[in-house]
Design a protein around this nucleic acid. Structure first.
Lengths: 232, 232
DNA sequence: CGTGAGTTTGACCGAACTCAAATCATGTGG
DNA sequence: CCACATGATTTGAGTTCGGTCAAACTCACG
């Protein structure tokens, strides 16, 4: 049983202690955003649902996620929320064209991020041509992932979207036993659905044998083909 | 009457002749993609619904739209089409991260584009740091516009989406008398709706006095506030 | 004037939303 | 260790809005 539990463990490569109380204090040093871009910076820890940066805030920093899961989202005029992306260790977030964040970022799980001053990146890009190219590549990756997300949102059925979401997650973590770090509400806002629709879709996928749901936050992919049929 | 018609005219800054038969042949010379990026290239003309480049095609060229309107779109697995953006003169299209196009581009109206070899841009970016920054900015702009489009798609109501679409268009062309270059089908695929829903929304907006529809392709914004209420 | 593509309108249906209630999970204090 | 409180998730019933199918209409063009 212990083993089964362990195999769901993920998202923190900081060792068994977890992130939270008993961590070493924020550290300073050189932060690498990409192979060619590194700059002086420091790390910070955030608890669940804490805001890392806010929509409309000055974009003074760029962040590299060291451990944990982060969501970026945007508040719509009618009060609803659009979750734009979930980020995992290694991802760079907060790198935006303008000098004001168009998104906000919050910790889904407890997490640790490495901060780099935006200005020092700009200076690096002026000096070093390779660095400039890396920053471009990071923006290009965001563009691509946003495009894929839009594809997902333009799918018809609720179950389809949930199926694709689960497959995406399985690909990220390279396992069929998913530990969902995010709530139904996060998933719903990511997929453009309500929590009820997400829940019903999950149940439906389970009824059809595509997945198993040992608990709400735990999903096992039982029949990948069935899921991929939904993805069409 | 002649004047009224004229005031709907737009999208071509090539003069009265229009684009099509009686044009000078494709020309060569230096093409400017941005203030700091220009490279040798040539121009080409396309008729309505002609493909400029196709999804999955080698991305050998980058294009600057000189005259006319272009849509970029993506075919979904279930056969439907997602129109990603409408482009107007001055826009740069076809600049994508990878070396394969993830979108296709088609002429909505007859149009003329200036082509630049992708490789010559890459070379320019290696030499000139300002050029690299401009290319980054172009990608960043795409990212931003895609983000705004996603906001639009995540709106609830059909009429809301159509209202926002019309306001966007009015902003682009800086007039309240819109000549829609694109078909209802294009609009529907852009907004994630059916042509019937687009049509019904238009009619509804007209009934409520927000717009007038002298003809299907002609929209006059009668009550901007009412439209902005929809945009909320 | 006829033709055909594009657009509008109507009737019906179904999927997702809304509101409400039941259930489950988790942590707390006795 | 258990009872309880709280929040998250699931389930149910009814409604709404956009999709689907079909038919009428418009307009540009030959």
């Amino acid at each position: 049983m212990e083993d089964a539990m362990r195999s769901f463990d993920t998202y923190t490569d900081l060792g068994g202690a977890g992130i939270g109380g008993a961590l070493p204090p924020a550290t300073g040093g050189m932060i690498a955003l990409s192979p060619r871009v590194s700059a002086p910076g420091f790390t910070m820890d955030f608890g669940r649902n804490e805001e890392i940066y806010g929509q409309e805030e000055e974009a003074d920093f760029v962040y590299r996620l060291v451990a944990g899961v982060v969501r970026t989202s945007r508040l719509l005029s009618d009060g609803r929320r659009q979750v734009v992306a979930f980020h995992y260790p290694g991802d760079v977030i907060g790198l935006e064209p303008g000098d004001v964040h168009t998104l906000s970022a919050e910790a889904v799980t407890e997490c640790r991020v490495a901060l780099v001053k935006r200005r020092s990146l700009e200076r690096a890009a002026e000096r070093d041509n390779g660095a400039a190219r890396d920053l471009w590549a990071l923006t290009a990756r965001d563009l691509q992932s946003l495009g894929e997300h839009m594809m997902l949102l333009s799918r018809k059925g609720a179950a389809e979207r949930v199926a694709v979401f689960l497959l995406q997650l399985a690909e990220r973590t390279e396992t069929d036993r998913l530990e969902l770090p995010m709530s139904r509400s996060d998933i719903a806002d990511y997929l453009g659905l309500t929590i009820e629709s997400v829940s019903r879709s999950m149940t439906q996928l389970e009824r059809e044998g595509a997945i198993a749901l040992p608990s709400a936050r735990r999903v096992m992919l039982r029949n990948r083909d069935a899921l991929e049929d939904y993805a069409c």
